[in-house]
């Protein structure tokens, strides 16, 4: 196994774990956590390709990850604010209860 495929394998495991969590957990916060893990897996791929792949430029991969971290921070802030707002109205963060209530 080359170092690159090792990195990619770890990243895909991380992605699968995040996806499984986002699909199975009932709490909205944990779904967001799962999404964050998937984003991190993608970032890890960027870094792995930057390190081991053919170089487009010395810093291209790093710049991509920096932007991705910025986007993830914004996403987490807005997502958590939405969860708080929903909680304030419905007093629950349980997604199943939220869906049942809407019907």
């Amino acid at each position: 196994m080359t170092p690159l495929s090792g990195c990619l394998l770890v990243a895909s495991m991380l992605f699968a774990v995040g996806l499984a969590g986002a699909l199975t957990r009932r709490n909205a916060i944990l779904v967001l956590v799962g999404i964050e893990l998937m984003l991190n897996a993608a970032n890890l791929n960027f870094v792995a390709f930057w390190r081991y792949g053919p170089h487009a430029g010395p810093v291209t991969g790093m710049v991509f990850v920096l932007f991705s971290i910025g986007v993830a921070a914004a996403e987490a802030a807005v997502g958590l604010a939405l969860i708080l707002a929903v909680y304030r109205h419905t007093k629950t963060t349980d997604l199943r209860q939220l869906i049942r209530r809407r019907q």
């Binding site: 895909s12 495991m13 992605f15 699968a16 774990v17 996806l19 499984a20 699909l23 199975t24």
Partner: peptide
Amino acid sequence: GILVAGAIF
């Protein structure tokens, strides 16, 4: 959910 994640992995 786990099936989907496993399949994607």
